[in-house]
């Protein structure tokens, strides 16, 4: 049993996402922090990993011995009042509290669990989307203070060889920490890009952007000083993960894993999966630029990231 004793923000239970849900008009969902999720999978040597996506201080009580890992931006992680390292496999013993503190505002973490939770699976996934009223804790709801998850199965200790730290390399922990890098977020021009004016395309890449406080797993709403003029779009279209929609107010929205299957705003391009995970970790106070790349370059970058897992 996993008990959420305290959380500042809702906690989303995620796995790899729903399978073949789009034909029913159902959101695919899945992790927003793709890299951290796959990193956690590698650390725990667990495919189809169940994880919790958190965005603030929280505390859990785990009632069964369980291997976990905490992946993402820097934070204070303690088990039974002892500080522990992130991005490593950790054994939590029954009754030991797991606490996460001092996570930078606007950033998120993944807690990977080497266990199977006792909750309903829809489209082969436990992801929940509140708008759709199914999955997650129940009826699509995220986890809040007081919620309890029962555990069906505990998986065995990951095999580390002689040294547990061999499971990962330091390179991986630094690589997805966007706050340590120049804040440029890659995007690939596609969808209605050709229908946007030269001025609109210029505004997308040449002015700074900020992630608004309204950003969530459905869409990362951005703020820019000069609104981006959008062409008229009448028909709804199928939305890929990471598409950049330009609504009438000219403030871009980058669509996340909990987006609806279709949307009617014109799309100027797509943020590749790896860059979406970086964008999701940019605090609201920090500025960034969009960096236009070709799909070929995006595939090369993606392949480099994937090679780590």
């Amino acid at each position: 049993m996993i008990e959420c004793r305290l959380t500042q923000h809702p906690i989303f239970i995620v796995d790899q996402g729903r399978s073949m849900s789009g034909l029913s008009g159902v959101t695919q969902s899945g992790p927003l922090l793709v890299h951290q999720y796959y990193h956690a999978s590698k650390v725990l040597q667990q495919s189809q990993l169940v994880a919790m996506e958190i965005s603030g201080d929280c505390e859990f009580l785990i009632h069964q011995p369980m291997w976990i890992t905490v992946c993402g931006e820097e934070a204070q992680v303690s088990i039974d009042e002892q500080y522990v390292s992130m991005n490593q496999p950790l054994l939590v013993k029954p009754g030991q509290p797991l606490r996460i503190k001092e996570l930078a505002p606007g950033t998120k973490l993944i807690i990977g669990l080497k266990a199977r939770l006792s909750c309903m699976r829809y489209f082969d996934s436990i992801c929940g989307v509140y708008r759709e009223r199914f999955g997650g804790v129940a009826n699509g709801k995220p986890m809040i203070t007081g919620d309890i998850f029962h555990v069906d199965a505990i998986f065995e200790k990951p095999h580390f060889g002689m040294n547990p730290t061999n499971a990962i390399t330091p390179y991986q922990t630094a690589r997805y920490s966007v706050s340590l890098q120049s804040s440029k977020i890659d995007f690939v021009p596609n969808y209605q890009y050709q229908h946007f004016s030269l001025h609109a395309r210029y505004l997308l890449t040449e002015q700074t952007m900020q992630v608004s406080n309204k950003a969530d797993r459905m869409g990362l709403r951005l703020i820019c000083d000069e609104p981006i003029p959008a062409p008229k779009q009448t028909a709804s279209q199928a939305l890929a993960l990471g598409v950049i929609q330009i609504p009438p107010d000219g403030q871009p929205i980058v669509m996340g894993p909990d987006r609806q299957t279709h949307g009617g705003y014109p799309v100027i391009g797509t943020v590749p999966d790896y860059a979406l995970a970086q964008l999701a970790q940019i605090p609201a106070t920090k500025h960034f630029h969009f960096n236009q790349i070709s799909i070929e370059q995006a595939i090369v970058n993606f392949t480099l990231y994937q090679s780590q897992y």
Binding site: Q16, R18, S19, M20, S21, G22, L23, Q237, A238, T261
Partner: peptide, 10 residues
């Protein structure tokens, strides 16, 4: 394949 989403034109 993990998902297929059909649109009106795509």
């Amino acid at each position: 394949l993990t998902n297929i989403v059909v649109g009106f034109n795509e």
